[in-house]
Write a protein that binds this DNA or RNA. Sequence first.
DNA 1: TGAGATACATCAAGTGCTTGATGAAGACCA
DNA 2: TGGTCTTCATCAAGCACTTGATGTATCTCA
Lengths: 170, 170
Amino acid sequence: MSSSPAPDAPITGEQIFTRVAWALRRADLNLQTAKERPLREIGIPGSHYSVLISLQVTPGVTAAELARVIGVTPQAVALLVAKLTASGMIERRTHPRHRSVQELHLTDAGREELAKAEYIVSDLERHIRDSLGDKSYRQLRELLGQVIDELPNWVPPQTDRGTVDPAADQ
Amino acid sequence: MSSSPAPDAPITGEQIFTRVAWALRRADLNLQTAKERPLREIGIPGSHYSVLISLQVTPGVTAAELARVIGVTPQAVALLVAKLTASGMIERRTHPRHRSVQELHLTDAGREELAKAEYIVSDLERHIRDSLGDKSYRQLRELLGQVIDELPNWVPPQTDRGTVDPAADQ
DNA sequence: TGAGATACATCAAGTGCTTGATGAAGACCA
DNA sequence: TGGTCTTCATCAAGCACTTGATGTATCTCA
């Protein structure tokens, strides 16, 4: 709230706030920042949690797969893996068939660390479910699933290329 | 539904994927990456778009407020503002009452640039609405709004720290 | 009126992640 | 069987953003 005399918000009817994309971004942003602080207090950055929970869900996943799941580049994952391996949270095992591929697994210490984080994250999830009620909670989950499934089908509109874009193509 | 395992049993993939927090993160992640590429093709990074659209919605906003809206630190905003000012997309005006405060406004060039980006982003939004149908689309928007409103009321659980739990946070 | 509180802006230093490029190994197929 | 394609991993360089700290201006209240 700024220091304008009239309490009425001067946000003249913009249709931006009615967008699902905007609401989705705001919701996820608030969600991430909400859980980031308590996680850091127990010494687990959000990125580390993402790795640990992914390994719990999908043991033996490769770094490249992991990168796609948590939405960062393989290089970023390599750095995370190096740290978590150094601190004994996870371990790398050579793939039985593909010798150049490294499978990632949680160690017992990693599972223990993850449990502490889960105590916080599951509490947040419970808060959301309690706030919305069981019916709306399931509805929201269903609708988000539909969005996730449909998003890859979107084809960006062509922005009169050929005039602006010389020949750059990948 | 499965019969409940032991309370402290390791969480399974099915349980994780049913979380709203997980779905929310996946949906936003896919959404951001989906629109990031076409935006970059017309020379507008996602972070720049966030600034421009925010200034469209709330003209005269300060850098500090902007930082809270788009979820980054004031320092990061300062860098963005410097770039967008240098390229003539936005301009800084001294606040009439607070001389140390800089209000941010779109320039005509900025509005033009934003229009190009909006062509893409609004198309994505339309795709989502068409995919879900009008009723589900409005439902999703409503539910996300509830989540955004309720999230600040969450109090992280105390993880055996010495401090005493404050009764309520305002 | 003047001390403390609050909010904005900005400087400096460090970190995490990105784009870009390279090498190695299994998969596909004539 | 050897060429081509795909995927994984990793090196190197650069940039975007963060944490931490400082200075300034306005507001609050004794």
